[in-house]
Design a protein around this nucleic acid. Structure first.
Length: 324
DNA sequence: AGTCTATGCTCAC
DNA sequence: TGAGCCTAGACTA
């Protein structure tokens, strides 16, 4: 479900509603019973994301979570629905506040009504908020970890990684990850230099390098395809064959798209969509991107059929007409 | 109702 | 290289 932008939003949600509070930590599913016991009863002190990795500090030990392809967090209780945490484009109004006494509110009611008393928020690309009547609500599905405070609860399902790390291990993780412009420790200028340095001395194709989390942390299959199209760069060209300007251009476009993703909660990779086109893009994935999931369809820019191939076991979408 | 697929990574072989 | 994770939306019937 998530590329880097979603994980940063989840880290924000933990900062808003969990940091500074003491948590009861359990593993309703049982698979994380030992780890949960290590964290149980501690105060949550920090919440950060590096790339797609979430790091929640428990006053000593750190919970490390990677959602993989379909992991998800559910938040419930008196949780923040601040517009800087939730999307401000009206999605929430639709599914959202129904049942919370806001029927008939306009789409942007999220700004004016504030949080309902009790809310369940499903994080991810399609964030939805619904009212809950009981706190804490029963876990839904196979909940690996439940983090419960007096007022809020977070449930984790289906992660690829869920483990407790000490400071040394957190440091090792940060070391093996490439730069992330939204990570707290990252100097913006240094991040760009690290990316350019690393990519420019690799003979691997740039389409592969952008997915390599040690080259740049947080890019996934959608952003990879869209960034390369926007830059009109053939995914097969080696990093070492790209000019300095091309690499810096890719990095700066990533910084921009990531910021948009963190603020809106969606991967909007076509700039400047307004009105009906924007609504269509929000409704249909096929209308949202330049090349992602558009194989066989005519390129929006040149009309050439969008190509699909496998690169390192992942689907690569690109335009043979535009990307040279 | 059932089938397919997925924005990702880890581990076994 | 392929299975597992074991969710959930999109799609088919």
């Amino acid at each position: 479900m998530p590329e880097g932008h979603s994980v940063h939003r989840i880290a924000r949600q933990f900062r808003a509603n969990f940091v500074g509070r003491t948590a009861a930590v359990s593993s309703p599913q049982g698979r994380f019973a030992v780890g949960a016991a290590e964290l149980d009863g501690r105060e949550i002190t920090t919440s950060d994301a590096i790339g797609k990795h979430l790091l929640v500090g428990f006053d000593g030990p750190t919970l490390h979570v990677h959602l993989g392809i379909y992991g998800a967090w559910d938040f419930a209780g008196a949780i923040s629905l601040d517009p800087t945490i939730l999307a401000a484009d009206g999605r929430m109004g639709q599914t959202g506040m129904r049942g919370a006494g806001t029927e008939g509110e306009s789409e942007d009611s999220i700004h004016s009504i504030g949080a309902p008393r009790l809310t369940r928020l499903r994080a991810g690309e399609h964030e939805t908020a619904t009212a809950v009547t009981v706190f804490p609500p029963d876990p839904i599905g196979q909940v690996r970890v439940r983090i419960l405070t007096d007022t809020a609860v977070a449930d984790l399902r289906g992660p690829t990684v869920c483990e407790v790390l000490d400071d040394r291990q957190v440091e090792a993780l940060a070391q093996r990850l490439g730069p992330d412009p939204e990570a707290p420790t990252e100097s913006k200028r240094r991040a760009e230099e690290r990316f350019v340095e690393r990519a420019s001395r690799s003979n691997q194709p740039i389409g592969q390098l952008l997915m390599d989390q040690s080259v740049v942390a947080g890019i996934g299959n959608v952003y990879r395809a869209e960034l390369l199209f926007r830059a009109a760069i053939d995914p097969h060209r080696a990093g070492s064959q790209l000019t300095d300007d091309e690499l810096r251009g890719l990095w700066r476009d990533w910084v921009k798209l990531l910021r948009i993703g963190v603020e809106t909660g969606q991967m909007l990779t076509i700039d400047g969509l307004r009105g009906a086109r924007r609504a269509a893009a929000l409704a249909n994935r096929a209308d949202r991107h330049w090349v992602y999931k558009r194989e066989g369809l005519p390129c929006r820019r040149c009309g050439t059929a969008i190509a699909l191939e496998t690169m390192q076991g992942r689907k690569l979408y690109w335009c043979p007409g535009c990307q040279l």
